[in-house]
């Protein structure tokens, strides 16, 4: 009897471990395949059959993407919007979150409700577009930054964290005559690094991955193009043959390598920074997501 149970357990464990292995493979294979193709000679790739190892190793594809002015520029804009957007967003959300975490703040209730509503109702694409047009944000770098500075969801996540800090820490500082700003900078911010790291990751990933705002507002301006948008243009033109293909400067310039290889190399360039960052912040964002969901 006892023997049988152990066997059933072992079967269960093996089977379960196998399912997890399949999850691992299904998740990782596409990335490894993209990496292999991006490191394989373009003309050799066309023959097919590349799995997770390059057959004829080369770094040519990467050299090529970094020689095209458009792509270099797009890379620069992507980095710039990520840095500026993250810094601005982090400053804004932490400041607003702090004021909302203070139970004695007069406008706390009003501002909270004001922010909550934005989570449920949005004006939609067209009024948004016309607003950007009226504000002269079309064909401008700032359209990437300004509308995204305040995000109610992030503010509430930070607020929940700050509310969990013992208030006595602030109280003694106030008695010593510290101002709200001093307390915020000297006491609250240093204690909130875990949640700030999480939010920084979320904002940065959002900015880095964003392509639709480029498409909608700056689609005709090569100087403000982003890496994701360039990738999207190549994807659309090679796969679906849509209108995009007709005015795709990057593809027209390319003769030595195929669009497919370029696509893979750009994909790796966009994915690698993320892979290098998120595992280190894992314990923070797992905690943050759990708290946020429980509270809301």
């Amino acid at each position: 009897m006892k023997r049988k149970k152990i066997n059933v357990d072992r079967v269960f464990n093996t089977f379960n471990g196998l399912i997890m292995a399949i999850v691992l493979i299904v998740t990782l294979y596409p990335f490894l395949n993209v990496l292999a193709v991006s490191l394989n000679e373009s003309l050799d790739t066309v023959k097919g059959g590349i799995t997770i190892f390059p057959r004829k190793f080369t770094t040519e594809n990467y050299k090529v993407i970094f020689t095209y002015q458009n792509l270099l520029n797009a890379f620069f804009i992507s980095v710039l919007r990520t840095v500026v957007g993250t810094v601005a967003g982090l400053i804004a959300s932490s400041m607003v979150a702090y004021t909302l975490s203070r139970s004695d703040f007069q406008a706390r209730k009003f501002f909270s409700t004001f922010l909550v509503l934005t989570l449920y109702v949005s004006g939609g694409l067209i009024p948004g577009f016309l607003l950007m047009r009226d504000l002269h944000l079309i064909n401008s770098f700032w359209v990437y930054i300004l509308p995204a500075i305040v995000n109610a969801f992030y503010i509430f996540m930070i607020r929940t964290y700050m509310e969990g800090l013992p208030f006595e820490l602030q109280e003694s500082a106030f008695i010593d005559g510290a101002s709200d700003i001093t307390v915020f900078i000297k006491i609250i911010l240093p204690l909130s690094t875990p949640v700030l790291a999480t939010i920084a990751l979320f904002i940065a990933v959002g900015q880095w991955n964003s392509w639709f705002d480029t498409y909608l507002y700056n689609g005709s301006n090569d100087l403000l193009s982003t890496l994701q948008f360039e990738l999207m243009k190549i994807l659309q033109s090679t796969q679906t043959g849509s209108d995009m293909a007709r005015n795709n400067n990057v593809l027209e310039q390319m003769t030595t390598v195929t669009p497919d290889s370029i696509k893979m190399a750009i994909t790796i360039v966009t994915v690698v920074p993320i892979i290098m960052v998120y595992p280190f912040l894992q314990k923070y964002f797992v905690k943050g997501m759990t708290i946020g969901a429980v509270k809301s």
Binding site: T118, V121, G123, P127, G128
Partner: peptide, 9 residues
């Protein structure tokens, strides 16, 4: 950025 578009309705 969030309320004026609603006025746009």
């Amino acid at each position: 950025f969030n309320y004026i578009p609603i006025w746009g309705w």
